[in-house]
Design a protein around this nucleic acid. Structure first.
Lengths: 138, 138
DNA sequence: GTACTTGCAAATAATTTGCAAATAT
DNA sequence: ATATTTGCAAATTATTTGCAAGTAC
């Protein structure tokens, strides 16, 4: 995902391209490790030093609605975000450095069909996150 | 999971069986839908009317360490808990009534091996939650 | 009897809201 | 020019901690 793509889609969706929003977008793209709103704010200050935490919250909400970020459900809480590409829906997270990348080809259909049969539930959605160690950290 | 099993293991692990703890355990077992600490407190009041919210938090922590409850990562936040059986590790959640049951046989090994190969990560753990509609709610 | 547990009150942390000033278009 | 966005301050919500009183063993 590039800054241009995000800016374009933000704009097309009727939102303004402001300095604080750009700063958050850059902060997210410059580093693939997941981060909390206040960590993202610290990174974003490099691009817009006076950015307020409230603006970071609001920008994350906005980017989340548009599918450019997603909340990470880590062992220590669910207050962090990572960039996300539209379409893919799952993160693979490095336990050491926090790098959160998306992986391709989540095909669980036969597994889900079996669980559905066993339980009587219809299954409509799933949350899947993999945790491990990235190649750099190994 | 039964009250007796939990009480026994709590006791064996050196913890005391108190009225507030029993109330939380009963509140959890009486209903399989997941609930927030304060909802659990409301349910537990039926068994011990003066129970404090702090005690509910502490009891949930304790039960969580022992593996009898697990946090549910729902669409609206990660502040809720459901009962868990030792060994199984994933919940299937009804979107309508909140029933959270565990399912058997999570075999993702070949899937995980493929992701590992594609990404260069070693994969050590995973978080999986399925969301759907239970047979009663259908 | 003693160590563990409880629950209040207070502290801390996380998030949201109201609103006047600033800014993108 | 105007509607959107910002960011402060304050409100709200969630969670943790200190500690004196209560309770299980």
């Amino acid at each position: 995902m590039t800054e241009n793509t995000i800016v374009q889609q933000l704009s097309q969706a009727g939102h303004r391209i402001t300095q604080p929003r750009l700063a958050v977008i850059r902060a997210l793209l410059e580093d693939d490790s997941y981060a909390s709103p206040s960590e993202i704010r610290e990174r974003a200050k490099r691009y817009y030093p006076t950015i307020g935490l409230v603006t970071v919250y609001r920008t994350l909400d906005l980017l989340s609605e548009l599918g450019f970020v997603r909340r990470i459900h880590a062992e220590d809480g669910c207050h962090s975000y990572a960039t996300a590409n539209n379409g893919h829906h799952h993160h693979l997270i490095c336990r050491r450095c926090g790098a959160a990348i998306e992986f391709q080809g989540c095909d669980l259909s036969s597994f889900l069909a079996r669980v559905s049969q066993q339980t009587g539930y219809t299954i409509e959605d799933h949350l899947l996150e993999l945790v491990g160690v990235c190649s750099t950290c190994q």
